[in-house]
Simulated scan of single mutants.
Amino acid sequence: MRYQELPPPSYLKSHVRYFWTLESNGVVHEPKILGPMADGCPGLIIQQSADGIFYQENKELPDLLLYGQTTRYTELHVTGSICSIGVICYPHALKSIFGLNADELTNSCMDLDILAVTKDFYLAERLSNAPSLTGKIDIISTFLFNQINKNSASADEITHFALSQIIESGGSIALKDLQQQLQLTERSFERRFKQGVGISPKLFSRICRFQNSLKQLKSNNYSKLSDIAFEHDYADQSHYIRAFKEFAGFSPYQYQKKSTKAEAGTNFLLMPK
């Protein structure tokens, strides 16, 4: 398997964090498990292999897949040859790119090809005719840029500001103070945030803390696991382990063992079934 991450073109940098590609070296005879973890970001997965198929809970997934916030560990099963392109977007992208209320796709996905704008752009046909991954990424980038320009939904500056403050603090900002700063009631703040991001400010903050702790765990920049817990404002090590299991599917120790035996991307593990 070959996994790589690529930066977006400059005109997408406020909407897309990065592209990723995953290719198998020939036919994959044994099914694989793609284990995405909660990362606070929606995105796209585009499968380009003629015989490669994604499944989730025994349900075949579309080749052009748009997904929302993932709040828990999930598994995608992959069979056949793999030639996939992923787009990891920023938390506000379902609203800012596609004009969708983000909470409609939380822990869910949809076939991107059913959107009228996709059909007008002939995205599937263009991708199937592109000879290289680079060419396909260029097509996807153009599609996203066109969609941004066509999107009539105005940016919610309040939600964008709240997002920036939560991310900058690593999920440790006092949400009550942020709400008062924005001069919103708790109910209005949560409603607007859910529509723009897909989940509540509290849950998004928890995912930010988990992701920051994951970066530290990957870098081995700690002496004891409790060091990571306290540096990221967990009450103690046991609280940290519970949160890690919720978002990653297994404990920090199990994650480290799996990541040494599997191909690891930024927010998923690719493991033999």
Rank of each mutant, 00 (worst) to 15 (best):
P8Q: 10
W20H: 06
G26T: 13
G26D: 14
P31L: 09
P31G: 08
G35D: 04
A38Y: 05
D39N: 15
D39Q: 14
G40K: 13
G40W: 11
P42T: 09
Q48N: 14
Q56R: 14
P62A: 06
L64F: 05
L66E: 07
G68I: 02
T70N: 08
E75H: 09
H77R: 12
V78C: 07
T79D: 14
G80L: 06
G80F: 13
I82C: 13
I82V: 15
S84L: 05
S84H: 07
G86Q: 05
H92W: 09
K95Y: 06
I97Q: 02
G99D: 01
N101W: 01
S108R: 13
M110N: 01
L112A: 02
D113T: 00
I114V: 12
V117H: 04
R126L: 08
P131F: 06
T134S: 09
G135F: 03
D138R: 11
D138Q: 15
L144V: 02
Q147M: 12
Q147P: 03
N149S: 08
N149H: 10
N151K: 10
F161G: 14
I167F: 02
I167K: 15
E168Q: 14
Q181E: 15
S188D: 09
E190V: 12
E190R: 14
Q195P: 00
I199C: 13
S200Q: 06
K202L: 13
F204I: 07
S205K: 08
I207T: 04
I207G: 11
Q211N: 15
Q211I: 10
N212S: 11
N212M: 07
L214E: 05
S219Y: 11
N220G: 12
N220D: 15
N220R: 14
S223D: 11
A229K: 00
E231L: 12
D236C: 03
S238P: 00
R242W: 03
F244W: 15
S251Q: 01
Y253G: 00
Q256K: 04
Q256R: 04
K257S: 04
T260D: 08
E263R: 13
A264D: 06
N267M: 00
L269Y: 10
